[in-house]
Amino acid sequence: MLTKAEKTKQFILEMAVPLYNEKGISGVNIDDVLAATKLTKGCLYGHFENKDDLSEQVIDFMLKKISSRIYLAVSVGKTAKAKIYAFMDFYKDPIDTYISGGCPIFNTAIEADNSYPLIKKKVAVLIKEGQEALTGILKEGIANGEFSSKIDPAGFAFKMVAAIEGGIVMCRTLESTKPMQGLIKSLKKELEQQ
């Protein structure tokens, strides 16, 4: 059971996540978080040393939240094929995303690339772990006869994630989910045909 202080900190993190995903680390200021939480500066600084500390903890929380949700979606699948399809389907609506503002992994990676080296390393670890997990599922599917042995598991995992992440950005820019539907259908068809 969480203490009152832990509940307050959790609340701050929850309320700050969409702000950070939509505006980015450099775009969010303390006043944004105060407005979203309706808390005082004193309360906020009782839980976080400064904006950098807040930002780092929000990003950590956000990345854990999205990766847990993806893992949950994928783990529902009973077969390798169902797991891979569940991963793809998780991204089927790039406009109305689980955390508003698009994919937090991609958004954070883009902003952290040149400006936040420690956060960039955290995102890199998450991406690497995700790629390894997807590669493992594809290998399992090949071993089970669900996928062709012609598939390069690591190559397809990379291609799938790169295509989906790029698709999210393009669909959000075009304000249309339709291209993502076509992309996912095409990726599934490619798996089926090999």
Rank of each mutant, 00 (worst) to 15 (best):
K121H: 10
L126Q: 09
S75I: 04
Q10C: 07
P18Y: 01
M160N: 08
M88Q: 12
K78A: 13
H47Q: 12
F90T: 14
Y91I: 03
A36N: 07
V76S: 13
L174M: 11
I119S: 04
I137K: 00
F106C: 15
K185Q: 13
E146N: 07
K64C: 06
T8K: 06
K189Q: 13
K51H: 12
Q194V: 12
K51D: 09
G102M: 03
D89F: 01
A80C: 06
K178A: 14
V74N: 08
K122F: 00
L191Y: 03
H47K: 09
G155E: 05
L19E: 05
S67H: 07
E129L: 09
L44W: 00
E190V: 08
K159R: 09
I12Q: 03
V161N: 10
M180H: 04
E146Y: 07
A80G: 15
Y20C: 07
S26Y: 06
Y71E: 15
G155A: 05
G27M: 02
N29T: 11
K9E: 14
C103I: 04
G130M: 01
Q181V: 01
L2I: 08
F90S: 13
I151P: 14
K51M: 11
D113N: 12
A80R: 03
L19M: 07
L34S: 05
A109D: 15
K92W: 07
C171G: 11
V76T: 14
E111Y: 00
A73F: 01
S148D: 12
E146D: 02
K78E: 14
F90Q: 10
I137A: 02
I168C: 03
E56S: 14
S149E: 15
A73D: 11
G167S: 08
V161C: 08
E6C: 08
N21I: 02
L63E: 07
T173H: 08
G166V: 05
Y116M: 05
I66S: 10
I127K: 06
A5L: 04
N50Q: 06
T37C: 00
A82T: 12
E49V: 13
D53Q: 09
S148F: 03
S149P: 06
K139I: 11
I127G: 02
I119K: 01
D113T: 11
G77K: 02
Y85P: 13
K185L: 12
E140M: 08
T108M: 04
K189T: 15
L39E: 04
G27Y: 03
T135V: 04
A36M: 07
L191H: 00
S115D: 12
P18M: 00
S149W: 06
K81I: 06
T37W: 01
A112P: 09
E192G: 07
K38R: 04
P153R: 00
P18C: 06
K65M: 10
G46N: 10
I164E: 01
A36I: 06
T177W: 01
A5Y: 09
K65I: 01
M160S: 11
L174D: 10
P104S: 03
F87M: 05
P104L: 04
F11T: 11
L44V: 06
A82E: 15
K9V: 09
V125P: 02
A73P: 12
T173W: 01
M1W: 10
D52Q: 15
V33F: 01
K159S: 13
G24W: 02
I84H: 05
M170Q: 08
L72I: 14
T37M: 05
